[in-house]
């Protein structure tokens, strides 16, 4: 459990992670559910991936991330959840856990995510609906061809900007 106590950023009671992550009851989740019924079936909420795994964003090591993933899997994998009424919830939670782990356990994806996380908080502060971040394979491939140079980073910001704009345009339709 020493891993979980590292989650200083969220200062949450770790014995009740369901509540602490706010997953079953969060508004975001509800929004996502409505969306699913309506349009899409994406399950990933806008939760911070570090919070999903209960690790510290700044300095969690790979080993800590792996251990956090395993210990949470042991608690929330549908195979170890024997309350039938919670099965669906634990499945959803685990899918989310996987998405978080997939990103944070890959150094390149993690770096990319950290950058986006920085941008996201900026974007959110000006009140724009932020782009959902997904660790899809395509995205992974996209990242693999990217270099880490400043010039490229600037370019990437440009792309994100375009995406954000098209999102805005859509909203206006």
């Amino acid at each position: 459990m020493d891993v979980l106590s590292l989650s200083s950023s969220s200062s949450l009671s770790m014995c009740k992670p369901f509540q602490s992550h706010g997953l079953p009851l969060s508004k975001q989740q509800r929004v996502s559910n409505v969306k699913f019924g309506a349009v899409s079936c994406r399950v990933t909420t806008q939760e911070n991936l570090y919070k999903v795994l209960s690790v510290s964003p700044g300095n969690a090591t790979m080993d800590e991330i792996k251990r956090a993933y395993r210990s949470m899997a042991l608690q929330y994998h549908p195979d170890v959840c024997h309350d039938p009424s919670m099965k669906e919830e634990s499945t959803r939670m685990f899918v989310e856990l996987n998405a978080a782990y997939k990103t944070l356990s890959n150094p390149r994806l993690r770096e990319q995510y950290d950058t986006e996380l920085g941008q996201r908080s900026k974007v959110m502060s000006v009140g724009v609906d932020h782009e959902r971040w997904r660790g899809s394979k395509l995205q992974e491939e996209m990242i693999e061809v990217k270099t880490r140079s400043r010039r490229r980073m600037a370019q990437k910001r440009g792309i994100s900007g375009t995406r954000m704009r098209s999102q805005n345009m859509k909203d206006r339709h």
Partner: peptide, 18 residues
């Protein structure tokens, strides 16, 4: 799902609509 049951869902959205 955890019991390895596969479901395929398909939906149609027109641009500009949510």
């Amino acid at each position: 799902d955890a019991a390895n049951v596969l479901r395929v869902l398909a939906g149609v959205v027109m641009p500009g609509s949510r």
